[in-house]
């Protein structure tokens, strides 16, 4: 008898693609440079669509103490509950959310800023890092 299909495998693949898209959006050196071909498909922002909800849900779970902001802890927790592929998906999800909390929004703002707003938006990367780290520190060391 064949083993039942593990739905965590497509979840892990989708999260990996979303992570690639996040990295593409997060690298300042790629601002204004088109990415084509297979790499363009693999890193296309459309992979982030499910994470419009997923990121907010993950942040909510972190606040409730049900998801560790530390990717390795999330991997261990998911793997213990639902198996190896769940661990991979959990690791990638938390890594993705952490990058979004700490860095990506400011890079997206920089990438798409109107010329007249570029000067003001220069303060965002530092703010993004501070806000993200403070949030993660509170979750890790205060609420837990």
């Amino acid at each position: 008898m064949s083993a039942p299909f593990d739905y965590w495998i497509p979840a892990a693949v989708l999260t990996a693609l979303a992570l690639l898209a996040t990295i593409r959006l997060s690298l300042p050196s790629l601002i204004g440079k088109p990415v084509g071909g297979v790499l363009g498909v693999l890193t296309h922002p459309v992979w982030l669509f499910p994470f419009i909800f997923g990121i907010a849900v993950a942040v909510g779970l972190m606040i409730q103490g049900n998801l560790s902001p530390w990717p390795l802890a999330a991997r261990a927790d998911f793997a213990a509950k639902w198996g190896m592929w769940a661990g991979v998906a959990g690791f990638l999800l938390v890594l993705l959310v952490d990058i979004w909390l700490i860095w990506t929004p400011s890079m997206i703002a920089r990438r798409f800023a109107k010329p007249e707003s570029r000067e003001a938006i220069k303060v965002l990367p530092l703010f993004n890092v501070v806000f993200g780290l403070v949030f993660l520190a509170i979750v890790l060391f205060v609420w837990r």
């Binding site: 907010a56 849900v57 942040v59 909510g60 972190m62 606040i63 929004p105 993004n128």
Partner: peptide
């Protein structure tokens, strides 16, 4: 509800920004 909690943190982020 959890989504709402997460959304509140992101709202705080954009207001501070």
């Amino acid at each position: 509800e959890i989504y709402g909690f997460g959304g509140a943190v992101l709202l705080l982020f954009v207001l501070c920004a």
